[in-house]
Amino acid sequence: MTEPVGDDRRQAELVTALGAVRARIADACVAVGRDPQEVTLVAVTKTCPATDIATLARLGVLDIGEARDQEARAKLAELAEAPYPQVSLRWHLIGRLQTNKARSVVGYAHAVHSVDRPKLARALADAAAEHRDHPLDVFVQVSLDGDPERGGVVPAELPALADLVAERPELRLRGLMAVPPVGSDADEQFTRLAELARGVRDDHPAADALSAGMSDDLEAAVRHGSTHVRVGSALLGRRPPIVS
């Protein structure tokens, strides 16, 4: 197998950072009596080059988070070419998604973490019915502060949206996702999210996943039941934007 392109210094940086992030997840789990294997590390690679994804894959990180469909597709195309090793990555769309991107996303995504309105849920289901032979994993994004610019369904409308996702056989309701408001108390916000998640599980027992926690607050998220932590800067550093 041909080695992926990249430099030794960058690989060493990623090895060190990955070890630190995994240790943080493990310590947070031990502190509350959880098994670290219950927590999936989603490497948020937005604005990072495909070489980083290839290196992470070699290190065993196969869950990749991207915020924009266009950027994800560009990296998919690059990784499909030599000299990258061909591995099965699980792509997670974590950013706000326009309905007109649904057909593109269902062609490669393992999960969408940002479903926050009925129109988007229906668009993904319709596209999946046409272009997939298995359901698309969906996390319903909840707004914890009611700010429409940050995405997320308000809690009062959450049950109806969860029901809609669960009713579509082309989708699999995995659970909830949220991003705490900037400057808020993470434990307080994740306590609220966990309560909302319990309410959804009462109606949909299989929706047992929780996408919560990022570089600065993953420990608090793990304390409150997160099964998917979305880590960017703590793993990959702060990268300059990719110029398209």
Rank of each mutant, 00 (worst) to 15 (best):
P4N: 04
G6I: 08
D7I: 02
D8T: 15
D8A: 15
R9Y: 00
R10A: 07
R10E: 04
Q11D: 13
A12S: 15
T16N: 11
T16V: 09
T16C: 09
A17L: 01
D27C: 04
A28Y: 02
A31R: 11
V32A: 01
V39A: 03
T40D: 06
V44C: 06
K46M: 01
A50C: 04
A54P: 04
L59I: 11
V61F: 12
L62P: 00
K75F: 06
L76A: 05
E78I: 15
A80L: 06
A80F: 05
V87I: 11
L89W: 07
L89I: 13
L89R: 14
R90T: 11
H92L: 06
R96S: 14
L97C: 11
N100R: 14
A102S: 13
V105F: 05
V106R: 03
Y108T: 13
H110W: 15
A111L: 15
V112P: 08
R117E: 08
R117K: 14
L124W: 10
E130I: 09
E130T: 12
R132A: 07
R132K: 07
D133R: 14
D137V: 10
V138G: 05
V140N: 12
Q141L: 03
L144H: 05
D145H: 07
G151E: 08
V154M: 15
E157W: 11
L158R: 07
L158E: 10
A160C: 08
A162D: 12
L164M: 12
A166M: 08
E170C: 09
R172C: 12
R174E: 12
R174A: 13
L176S: 02
V182A: 14
V182Q: 10
G183L: 00
D185M: 02
Q189R: 14
F190Q: 01
T191G: 13
E195I: 13
E195T: 15
L196S: 12
L196Q: 13
G199T: 12
V200F: 02
D203G: 13
D203W: 06
D208I: 01
A209N: 03
A212L: 09
G213Q: 03
L218I: 02
E219N: 08
E219C: 09
G225S: 01
H228R: 12
S233K: 01
R238A: 14
P241I: 07
S244C: 10
